[in-house]
Computed example of a mutant assay.
Amino acid sequence: MRVTVDMAKCENHGQCAIAAPAVFEINDDGNLVYDGNPVDSERGDTLAAADVCPAQAIIVEEN
């Protein structure tokens, strides 16, 4: 699985960090950082994070 975030759309709401904290994080500067290649065990949470993103900025692709 590959994850990308359209940073032009991302508004740093942080819903993804709540849904999948092992993959997404809001850093100390208030900006999103993420793991673009999460482990398979994070698949469910990662897909949930993409669903809850208010800006629909998260793209999940299968390898």
Rank of each mutant, 00 (worst) to 15 (best):
E11F: 00
E61P: 00
A48S: 14
N63L: 08
H13W: 10
I59L: 12
A20C: 03
V52N: 05
Q15A: 15
D45E: 14
N12Y: 10
L32T: 07
V39N: 06
A8Y: 06
S41K: 10
L32H: 07
A19L: 06
Y34G: 05
A17W: 01
D35M: 05
K9Y: 01
N31F: 04
R43K: 14
N63E: 12
D51L: 13
M1D: 07
A49Q: 07
H13G: 08
V60W: 03
S41D: 15
L32M: 10
C10P: 05
H13N: 11
I18P: 01
H13F: 02
G36T: 10
S41H: 11
D40T: 15
Q15K: 07
G14S: 09
V60P: 01
F24G: 01
M7G: 01
P21I: 13
R2E: 13
N31L: 13
E25P: 03
V39T: 12
V33A: 09
F24W: 06
A50S: 08
N31P: 00
V5S: 06
C10L: 07
V5F: 00
T4S: 12
A55R: 09
E11G: 02
E42M: 05
D40W: 05
Q56T: 13
Y34S: 09
C16K: 10
L47Q: 11
G36K: 15
V60N: 03
D45I: 03
V3W: 03
I59N: 13
T4V: 08
G44M: 13
G44C: 03
K9W: 07
A57S: 10
N31D: 14
V39R: 09
R2H: 12
A48P: 02
G36W: 01
G36S: 15
A55P: 04
A20H: 06
V3S: 05
E11S: 01
N12T: 14
L32V: 13
I58R: 08
E25A: 08
I26K: 01
M1T: 07
A48Q: 14
